[in-house]
Design a protein around this nucleic acid. Sequence first.
DNA 1: CTGTTAGCGCGTTCAC
DNA 2: GTGAACGCGCTAACAG
Lengths: 342, 342
Amino acid sequence: MTNIPDGKMPETPTMSDVARRAGVSAMTVSRALKEGSHVSKETRERIMQAVNELGYVLDQSAGSLSSRRTGFIAAIIPSINNSNFSDTARGITDALEETGLQLLLGYTNYSVEREEELIEAMLRRRPEGIILTGGSHTPKGRRMLEQAGIPVIETWDRPSQPIDKVVGFSNGEAMELLVETLAAKGYRRFGYIGGTTARDTRGSQRRAGFVCALERLNLPADRLISFGVPPISMEQGAQAVVNMLERWPDTQVVLCVSDLSAFGALMECQRRGMKVPEDIAIAGFGDYEIAACCHPRMTTINVDCYGIGRQAALKLTQAIQGVGKPEALTVTDFRVIEREST
Amino acid sequence: MTNIPDGKMPETPTMSDVARRAGVSAMTVSRALKEGSHVSKETRERIMQAVNELGYVLDQSAGSLSSRRTGFIAAIIPSINNSNFSDTARGITDALEETGLQLLLGYTNYSVEREEELIEAMLRRRPEGIILTGGSHTPKGRRMLEQAGIPVIETWDRPSQPIDKVVGFSNGEAMELLVETLAAKGYRRFGYIGGTTARDTRGSQRRAGFVCALERLNLPADRLISFGVPPISMEQGAQAVVNMLERWPDTQVVLCVSDLSAFGALMECQRRGMKVPEDIAIAGFGDYEIAACCHPRMTTINVDCYGIGRQAALKLTQAIQGVGKPEALTVTDFRVIEREST
DNA sequence: CTGTTAGCGCGTTCAC
DNA sequence: GTGAACGCGCTAACAG
């Protein structure tokens, strides 16, 4: 790696440049730039003028070295391109707004190895807290988190051995509820479409919930299609349903690991001239925008994605600021949304 | 949290803690932790052992204060929950992988005010470069960027007065191409669905391209529906097409500001028993996953979202490292994807 | 209300 | 191949 050719560039001004121009000490500039510090109106105005003239921007990395507060928290999500998780990110951002904390976001593409790298990269920048998705991490990742000395929140799941605090729900129970609801409507021959299980923990929990609920109902739970690596796409959902119909043509209802694959399946069925739900019923998971908008509208599980983010961030700021003692576990809501596709 | 039974610090260890434990100076630890530094194998092993025992993680913010390199670049996108932009983010991440630079991502929710805040928040952390979406910024935001002394890349657009470097395409030209292609197929009565114009620059450019192309073809360009604030949702697309059909029932083809609103329109038409494209044709913009998967598959404009990110990051690293002189402007491809909906 | 002193934890630079 | 001094830009703590 080469150095920056630093002859031409007007060096970015420092705080003492501002101080000199305003005829005060650097410390006073520091105070003037901070809310709630006592600086006389006149000095503050003089300082602000110097700031504007020089185009000065505070160097927060230097400041945080001194104040021991970096002013940001880290969040790691599987995919940035998934509205469930980006809703969670929005929830975090919104809850953080008033605290002055900034969000540093990373995404793993559903890889725990990538998660481990990200955890280390984040920790190097000394976040004041960290929010993770799910409870599966590499041993090294887990160890780093435990030793970091900062609050850790695992979300979107209920890990059996949490690192620290949890905001989530049981993906298995949610899927069980969906199966029960549909069984109560009279469906008997259930199929399931999901990704290969190893990588997407939440996906495999949903699948396990599917099997578990059917067994409890004394219904067969063998119509399982695993297709591709997570995130299982719309197109993969389409191909999987074809697969399903070839192997088990009399399947009555297909449950999918997410609305996205369910949507792909729905469209493919229509393309083949099948009517949903008359010929085959389809349900998804996650209550994405598409589930409410497609035709027919899709039955799914609504999960409080935004609330997960919001509550995780609130719990985190509580832990950081040491006000009150945040609960170790917050269980978030989920509910079945029955629509036209079942 | 954890108590270390050595009378030592529960505080996170520093480099000199590692050094003491390994019986070397802090400087040697610093070297051992950096690739390509000359440290004897034995000392390095001893150091690594101490690092592991203490669970030491490098403090990069302290390091960058000294080295004058923060090791990250900033990117600002309108929405994290939009696969076009998250594809760009992926392109950036991938291109950055080998450089050791990390990506700090922020999103504006299509608000320039929020963009201004974000620019300042980013600049406070001294990124080595910054990637923006579009060429519209607040005056203050623009000034901060100009004075930051770092390379700036504007993407997804071709600003008339770029701040620094550009990787993008003309949204207007792309929409013109789509209109021309559909006019060549025989369509005459065109309608357009988009958001209110002020906020989404790319959206208003697309709309301008729509009007411009029709005028050149001597076709009326007055069937314009503006609906809601960006990002215009699927549901809004559905409502807008209803609006369109009430006002201009004989519309032959509806172009939408993005595939998402086009999808909403498509589903709503089907819900009302209209056949697409026989009764009405619909086209989108962006070539989202949904366009290739819905039924009927949707005609749209494919934009090289991933490539925009990748090339922006490459240009940025070139500028940062000072190797070669990156072109000021890179124009990325777009093309019409004709599918079944037109 | 404002200034002074003394670091924060690391990398640069130079010595050996 | 290794170490010691020094300073990066800022703020905590204590004066005044």
